[in-house]
């Protein structure tokens, strides 16, 4: 438009000048932006991430099993605390050679603490854990978890007395006769 021709220049200038005088100067008061599409997209993404995020993060339980050894280890049976899980998930316990008694998982922690602290075999109790081959794995982990919790309590109690805790715990294979005996109860 700048190269409109020399002849046109003069009247144009006059016209522009006269118009500028007439026009009211608009004062800018900010501007409005339509935010609707932005909000739409933001909500869409928000709902997507909300639905896809799982708040449950996996955690772990440390396990250590003994190495493969051929030598039979002799244990004092009087200090043996046997914990068994039956095929239906019920937990049984017995001391030494007593008959297995059913125990509710809610009381198990208390029982384990008591036996380790108050019994004859204080801090020397050996816990043997056996699970039926048909027992659900969830139950096995639940019992191990309870024992771990009890362990914390025992260690705390003993440290108050100035005694160092020696944990003796083993996962033992359930013998067929144990299995038959438990299932018959």
């Amino acid at each position: 438009m700048a190269g409109g021709g020399g002849g046109m220049e003069v009247p144009q200038r006059v016209k522009r000048g006269s118009k500028a005088h007439k026009r009211k100067k608009k004062k800018r008061l900010g501007f409005r932006l339509d935010m609707t599409p932005l909000v739409d997209v933001a909500f869409l993404l928000l709902t997507f991430f909300m639905y896809t995020t799982s708040m449950i993060t996996p955690q772990i339980m440390e396990m250590t099993i003994p190495k493969d050894i051929d030598v039979d280890v002799q244990v004092d049976e009087n200090k043996l605390f046997t914990l068994q899980i039956r095929n239906d998930g019920k937990v049984y316990y017995n001391i030494a050679k007593d008959d297995p008694v059913v125990i509710d998982t809610a009381n198990l922690r208390q029982k384990a603490v008591e036996l380790n602290l108050l019994g004859k075999a204080k801090n020397e109790l050996i816990t043997a854990f056996k699970a039926d081959t048909e027992a659900p794995f969830g139950m096995v982990v639940a019992v191990l978890d309870i024992l771990n919790q009890a362990e914390g309590e025992i260690t705390l109690q003993l440290s108050k007395e100035g005694v160092k805790r020696k944990r003796k715990f083993a996962i033992v294979k359930m013998e067929p006769e144990d299995q038959a005996k438990l299932r018959g109860l």
Binding site: I60, M63, K67, D132, T133, E134, F137, V141
Partner: peptide
């Protein structure tokens, strides 16, 4: 069933992988 874990632990013991983790929730 626990049997699956028992068999697995036997294998791990045999291969000297005696320290492991159970993934829980």
């Amino acid at each position: 069933r626990y049997k699956w874990i028992e068999d697995l632990m036997d294998v791990m013991r045999k291969r000297n992988a005696t320290i492991f983790k159970f993934v829980t929730e």
